[in-house]
């Protein structure tokens, strides 16, 4: 029997290596012609990176920033999920709550940064409130859509067997909304990284945002770029984590191969 060979699982994607390589190469070439405070060479950024790693600030400040992001997002997720499910399952709740959620969603992250500084004391409380405020509307919207999108056919099939409310929730609603929940997490993480940096820049004395500001005031471009790298890498790592969870939780889906 002549079976078609399975497509090879590639650990490293060649196309990706080529495009990233081209980017780094042009950077290095450009750095020869530009002053150091505009575009330092890759070796300088790397040096700075290693220095930060040795001093321990790279690890601790990045960890702190990530901790702030996750703590706030988990809070935002819990509030958002509660609101989303309530709006999707209890009649009329949506009509009451959606205007408020939309109003809050319309407030820019930067405005929130200023507001939480005036409202709360203590860096951690402020950042937590900020993360919560910017993330819960996104979560509640996507979970509301997911609950509304639950298949009517499956709902009727389930109800015909007379389940309890908890059973409907556990056996049908929760599993149906998981894919949308994961998508919401991916979107929100990218957003949260940007907001938390601004918050740390304005009102903290620790964390990646604060370190960046420090480097900037020293006119140390290599430092700014090294911290930016740390941020981009951790952002990508978090996205990868969610994608891994996705393929684990959604392995029942037909593969697109």
């Amino acid at each position: 029997m002549d079976l078609e060979p399975l497509p090879k699982e590639r650990a490293l994607n060649i196309e990706m290596l080529i495009s990233l390589g081209a980017l780094l190469f042009s950077w290095q070439v450009a750095s020869f012609f530009l002053p150091e405070y505009v575009l330092p060479g890759l070796q300088m950024v790397l040096q700075e990176f290693l220095k930060m790693a040795q001093e321990g600030t790279l690890f601790w400040d990045t960890l702190l920033t990530l901790y702030r992001i996750w703590q706030g997002l988990i809070g935002g997720f819990l509030v958002g999920a509660l609101l989303g499910v309530a709006m999707g399952t209890v009649k009329k709740t949506e009509n009451y709550l959606i205007p408020i959620v939309n109003f809050i969603m319309g407030i820019p992250g930067l405005s929130w940064t200023l507001i939480v500084i005036l409202w709360f004391r203590g860096t951690e409380t402020r950042i937590f409130a900020l993360m919560l405020a910017v993330s819960f509307p996104v979560f509640s919207h996507s979970i509301l859509d997911a609950v509304k999108g639950i298949s009517k056919d499956l709902m009727e099939m389930t109800l015909a067997f007379r389940p309890t409310r908890t059973q409907v929730f556990r056996m049908l609603i929760v599993p149906s909304i998981i894919p949308h929940m994961l998508t919401a997490w991916k979107v929100t993480i990218g957003f949260a990284v940007r907001v938390v940096i601004v918050a740390e820049l304005v009102g903290a004395s620790t964390g990646v945002g604060f370190r960046m500001l420090q480097q900037q005031s020293l006119l140390n471009m290599s430092g700014v770029l090294a911290w930016t790298m740390a941020l981009v890498i951790s952002g990508l790592a978090m996205q990868l984590l969610i994608t891994k969870m996705e393929s684990r939780l959604l392995r029942w889906r037909p593969s697109t191969l």
């Binding site: 056919d153 389930t158 015909a160 059973q167 029942w252």
Partner: peptide, 29 residues
């Protein structure tokens, strides 16, 4: 509860459950 069952036009299986767990769905309820 437990007295009515239906076979529908479309199969209405739960896509994230295996065949066995689809067959146990009503029993689980």
């Amino acid at each position: 509860r437990g007295k009515l069952s239906a076979v529908f036009q479309t199969d209405r299986l739960i896509p994230w459950r295996t065949v066995l767990r689809n067959a146990t769905y009503a029993l689980e309820i």
